[in-house]
Design a protein around this nucleic acid. Structure first.
Length: 466
DNA sequence: GGAACTCGCCAC
DNA sequence: AAACGTGGCGAGTTCC
């Protein structure tokens, strides 16, 4: 598999993009060294005490005994897998790619053993300390980290980042988010800003398939594809955006059905994720009243049983029907494009991005469908970043671009420039880009989050448009 | 003692 | 027929 900038436009995009990103690298991101060291120590204290508690259990003594002469190590998943699935003879619910009994979070949670829950808590703290805080301290120079942004490593001509990786800083887990992002600051007297394209990949996909139903979802902001799918998947008659369980099930639908289906997953995998991982219902056997997450005034099991689904097996048939409707009725033009596009690749041996890149070689069907969308979507962000960099330099702004996360741009902003910068970002990202690339047949939208002056990246809030 | 590997987990 | 796309990185393990 190989992909090349196949046109002078593609070459220029990379050339200018590399220069703009190198300036962001040179600028860097300020970190609070004292905080990093202190947070590291606090985490170590917590980890040590959790470790000690774990060592003082029969579970650990049994584990140590089970591995013979070797040194017991609670961080060895080889030992853990052997202990659980060989010594204790537990039947593994999940296996790894190579067929071993899995020891990931999902597998250990399923076993419902208190010591394993403690081990998972330790893993979470270690991840924060060793992958993020340690890396910041190791990579920092005079209180700044300078993440690399690469344009030459990813198959789809997206970007990657390393040393340290600026594109995988915790966000979803609020505790991890706070601990790590509290280390990252703007320059003194400045504030952080992140401008994030809303639903960029979904919109760029629509530039390929032009599905009228999808275009309606994108163009009419009163509609909501994830809400509609949540209603269908979880049999909700009246969706109430203020009802917490409806909110959660919308998120489950978005991340456990809609996006996986777009990436090429199928109903069987989606069904398990939806009701077992998100809904906390058992994978095997009949569901009983009171099981699963809370739902309205009752529980998910009660609700689904009342609709005629009393087991994963039964519920899967429902998800299968929803999937058939999803691709066969709702987004049938999208589905037709996938087939056309796949056939065209099989005939020609290559696929083209919208941005002048050509991708050729042996690819699986999911790759053929995903690569052009992923690459083209990122290139929208790269073009905008490049134009923004040019503007800020030509007009002698003090504001600096400091990074990029696939569909967003991160800046270190002078407070006096805040209004002007946000205005120019909206202009470049949502007006100048579609005016320049005529293949963009959808509206683009950007959400801007800002921090307070001298506040860390843990405390961002939405900046309202005015 | 280091390269290459697996596994787990963070992001989009 | 098959069945979730793209990365980076830490720790443990295996091989040379």
């Amino acid at each position: 598999m190989q992909i090349n900038p196949n046109t002078s436009e593609a070459y220029k995009l990379l050339h200018n993009g590399v220069l703009a990103l190198s300036r962001a690298e040179q600028q860097g991101i300020r970190i609070d060294l004292d905080y990093c060291n202190k947070a590291k120590e606090e985490l170590t204290t917590r980890i040590d005490s959790l470790e000690k508690a774990l060592y003082d259990t029969n579970f650990y003594r049994h584990w140590s005994h089970s591995i013979g002469n070797k040194k017991p190590n609670i961080y060895s998943n080889t030992q853990l897998s052997h202990y659980l699935y060989k010594t204790k003879k537990i039947e593994p619910v999940f296996t790894t790619k190579s067929g071993q009994g899995s020891t990931d979070e999902e597998a250990l949670t399923e076993l419902n053993i208190p010591e394993l829950n403690d081990l998972l808590a330790i893993r979470r703290l270690k991840k924060v300390r060793d992958t993020y805080l340690e890396a910041f301290l190791r990579e920092q120079v005079n209180g700044y980290i300078h993440p690399s942004f690469n344009l030459h490593l990813v198959k789809t001509f997206r970007s990657s980042s390393d040393s340290p990786n600026f594109q995988n800083i915790p966000k979803r887990d609020k505790e991890a988010m706070k601990i790590v992002r509290q280390a990252l600051f703007p320059r003194e007297g400045h504030l952080l800003m992140e401008a994030d394209y809303s639903g960029l990949e979904v919109r760029i996909a629509a530039c390929f398939h032009k599905d009228p139903v999808m275009l309606r979802y994108i163009n009419d902001t009163t509609t909501d594809m994830h809400r509609d799918m949540a209603k269908q998947l979880f049999l909700i008659d009246q969706f109430n955006p203020d009802e917490p369980t409806h909110k959660l099930l919308r998120a489950a639908t978005k991340n456990g059905f809609v996006f996986p289906e777009f990436y090429g997953s199928w109903y069987k995998n989606c069904a398990v994720g939806l009701v077992c991982s998100w809904g906390k219902l058992p994978r095997t056997g009949k569901w009983k009243a009171g099981q699963g997450i809370k739902f309205e005034n009752t529980y998910l099991a009660d609700h689904l049983i009342s609709k005629g689904y009393n087991s994963l097996e039964k519920y899967m048939l429902h998800v299968k029907e929803v999937e058939n409707d999803f691709w066969g009725v709702r987004f049938k033009e999208y589905a037709k494009w996938k087939e056309r596009h796949w056939k065209a690749y099989q005939k020609s041996g290559y696929i083209d991005l919208k941005t002048g890149f050509r991708c050729y070689g042996v690819m699986a069907k999911n790759d053929v469908i995903n690569y052009p969308v992923q690459g083209s979507a990122f290139h929208c962000n790269l073009w905008a970043l490049t134009q923004l960099d040019k503007f800020l330099r030509e007009h002698d702004y003090d504001t600096r671009i400091i990074g990029q996360i696939h569909d967003s741009i991160v800046l270190d902003v002078h407070p006096d420039e805040l209004q002007r910068v946000s205005k120019i970002i909206r202009r470049i990202t949502c007006k100048e880009l579609p005016a320049t690339w005529e293949w963009i047949n959808v509206p683009l939208d950007v959400e801007i989050d800002i921090g307070k002056v001298d506040a860390s990246w843990a405390e961002m809030e939405k900046m309202e448009e005015n």
